Amino acid sequence: MDLADVSIETVNRASAEDASAVLALAEAAAGLDGASPLSEQSRLELRHGAPSARELLVRDGAAIVGFAHLDGSDLVDGPSAELFVAPAARGAGLGRALLESLAAEAARIDEAGRLRVWAHGKLPAAERLAAALGFTAFRELWQMRRTAGTPVPDLAMPADVRLRTFRPGTDDKAWLALNAKAFAHHPEQGAWTADDLGRRFAEPWFDPAGFFLAEDTDTGELLGFHWTKTHPATADSGPLGEVYVVGVDPAAQGRGLGALLTSVGLRHLAQRTVEGRPLAETLLYVDADNEAAVKVYTRLGFRVHTVDVMYRR
């Protein structure tokens, strides 16, 4: 491939045709690398658009051969991004050209010129590219998994707490407030809006029966939640369950609600099927330096499956 024939186009929102082409390329890259190059948030913003998003499309003629998603919504830590090159177009320097274009675009929206970049799967090629352009690793996100059939502890319910499932349209506002408190230290999750919630309600995997809430029996105030998710089978794996998000109000911590809600969700997933097939494994994501959470998940039978690395410059 001749780089002279390649162009990099930056748009606020990709067309439906381009978005479909990018998602197809992402699946091909995931099949080769063992990890998807795009997060759920990037996929949703690619499909639906977002005011703070920029999409960088690498074209060889009319064909898309690379892609980057730039999110400029975090005013505290600066822009973040994900990028990948189609498997058939690798080795020609497109990754470097795309990362340099990302850095230039980030400088247009951030006075300090900051840029954080996710590399999914901790691949050697990504490590080499980051080092070549002066990026250093500062965060690791682990995907942990547990196999189907691993026992789940049956924890006692506190007398002042009751469990129920989420009611779309009724619980939205209260849940968003709780999510913001539970993840005040985690802007990627804690800054969710009604639009973020609504987009997920529209996804084919959404099932309110797998979205559990813990509330105070006297006041009805939400204390914590466990939102579960399922994934269809792929060529490499059977259907998967996911501990999608677990959160507890900081004022309610120390009451064992995190472990209780996690166990409730795991028991629910153990009974789920996708397209008539039982779930093969359950996955979750956790920051590697969250020692308390890692200990809880390890006791529940989860083991590290893949590692994502965030770089910054």
Rank of each mutant, 00 (worst) to 15 (best):
L3S: 03
L3Y: 00
A4Q: 10
D5R: 14
D5L: 13
T10D: 09
V11A: 11
R13C: 10
A14S: 12
A14I: 09
A21R: 13
L25F: 01
A28I: 04
P37I: 08
S39G: 15
S39Y: 05
H48G: 02
S52R: 10
S52T: 12
R54W: 03
E55A: 14
L57C: 04
V58C: 12
G61W: 05
G61F: 05
A62K: 12
A63I: 07
A63E: 14
G66Q: 00
F67K: 02
A68K: 08
H69W: 15
H69R: 11
D74Q: 10
G78T: 02
P79W: 06
L83D: 02
F84N: 06
F84Y: 08
V85C: 09
G91E: 00
L94F: 05
G95W: 00
S101C: 13
W118M: 09
G121C: 07
G121H: 02
L123R: 12
L123Q: 11
L123I: 10
A125Y: 03
R128G: 06
L129D: 06
L129A: 09
L129Q: 06
A131L: 12
G134E: 09
A137E: 12
F138S: 14
R139N: 09
E140M: 09
E140H: 15
E140Y: 12
L141Q: 12
Q143H: 05
M144N: 02
R145S: 15
A148P: 02
G149W: 05
G149I: 01
V152I: 11
D154G: 07
L155E: 05
A156N: 03
D160R: 07
L163I: 13
R164G: 07
T165P: 06
R167E: 10
L178E: 06
A182C: 06
A184D: 07
A184W: 04
D196M: 04
G198T: 07
R200L: 05
F201E: 15
A202G: 01
E203M: 14
P208R: 04
G210F: 06
G210P: 05
A214H: 01
E215M: 01
G220P: 07
E221D: 14
L222G: 08
L223Y: 03
F225P: 04
K229D: 07
A233E: 13
A233F: 08
G238H: 07
L240I: 07
E242M: 13
V248D: 00
D249R: 03
A252C: 03
G258Y: 02
V264S: 01
V264T: 12
R267D: 09
R267Y: 02
Q271A: 12
V274D: 04
E275R: 14
R277C: 00
P278R: 11
E281A: 13
L283T: 12
L284Y: 06
Y285T: 08
Y285H: 14
A288N: 08
V294Y: 02
T298F: 07
V309N: 08
R313L: 10
